[in-house]
Computed example of a mutant assay.
Amino acid sequence: MAIDCAACPLRELELFAPMSDEELEFMKSFKTGELTAEQGTEILAEGASSTQLYTALSGMGIRYKTMEDGRRQVVGFVLPGDFVGLQSGVMGEMQHSVEATTTMKLCVFNRSDFWRLFKSQPRRAFDLTHLAAREEQMLGEALVTIGQMNGVTRVAWALYRFFQRLRALDMMKNGRVPLPYRQQDLADAVGLSLVHTNKTLTRLREAGVATWQDDFLVVHKEQELARLGNVEPNTISLRPLI
């Protein structure tokens, strides 16, 4: 059974900005259902025009582009609360693919109804603009990190950003957060070889800074991981939830 927007567990988290009663009623009408995507399911395909847009309710996924030779470049990760498919909604087709890394549950919205959001809910439309700006900010930060920083900084930056976000999503249990990705995914995302990524993770583990194994991340020295990743610690701002 689909979750009523009023009872959405994500709305209870301090990470997400509150909605007015009017906005909540609109979201109830905007949402058309829910989709469960099993691990490995392609949710959106690069170059395709999707009739549906999504918000990740639970589970994790990956955003990637496929090169002509078959290689894959990871361009981002999908965590609970992320809006997926904005490119298709605005540009007509996706510029990257989205795949479920774990079983995911997603709220579904019809693309054909997209304009109604802009027409009748200007604040919600601004929230979408906010999300697009945040994604641009993160891509810029990633580009600087990949283009100008060494391997340790790249990996530490990625791990700390994961840790910050997953903790804010109340997903930290017994001092660890779930991180069900492959080392190859991280390597692709930060522009390192798998060997270099593995050696860097080993270095961080042996230094007692952070351990990523068995699909979980434990940060032993948060301030040090933030320093190594060139990230301001404990800084994560309020974000809209669509």
Rank of each mutant, 00 (worst) to 15 (best):
V219F: 00
T36W: 14
Q73S: 10
K199C: 00
K105V: 11
A207V: 01
T32I: 13
A207N: 15
R165Y: 12
T51M: 06
F118L: 15
R72M: 04
D82E: 10
R134I: 06
R205S: 15
E38V: 13
M138D: 04
E206A: 10
R123F: 03
D214I: 02
Q121M: 14
E141P: 01
G76N: 03
V98T: 12
M172T: 03
I3E: 13
E38L: 08
T235G: 00
T235V: 13
I242G: 03
L166K: 04
D21L: 14
S58E: 13
R154G: 06
S193H: 08
R63Y: 10
A45Y: 11
L217S: 02
N150W: 09
M67K: 08
N150G: 15
I43F: 15
E99L: 12
N234W: 11
L79V: 15
M19A: 10
P180E: 06
V231A: 03
P122T: 01
G70W: 01
M1N: 11
L238G: 02
L53P: 05
L86W: 15
M138V: 04
V209D: 03
M171N: 00
L194M: 12
I242M: 11
G33F: 00
L10T: 09
C8Y: 10
N110I: 00
S29A: 09
Q39K: 06
D127S: 03
R71N: 10
T129L: 09
G81A: 01
E38G: 13
Q223G: 03
V108H: 01
E23M: 06
G81R: 06
A187S: 12
I3K: 13
A56L: 04
V231E: 04
Q95R: 11
V219W: 00
G33D: 03
P180M: 07
R161C: 09
V78Q: 06
K28I: 02
G140V: 01
Q148I: 02
A37S: 09
L53S: 09
N234A: 03
M172N: 08
T153N: 12
G208I: 05
F126D: 05
E14V: 15
E38H: 08
R176G: 03
A100C: 13
T66L: 05
V84N: 03
D214K: 12
A6K: 12
K221H: 10
D113K: 11
K65R: 12
C8D: 14
R72C: 00
E135N: 08
D82I: 04
R111K: 15
A156D: 02
A133R: 04
G92T: 07
L139T: 08
N174C: 05
R167T: 07
T145K: 04
R71K: 14
P18K: 01
T66Q: 08
T197Y: 07
S88E: 14
M27Y: 10
S58P: 01
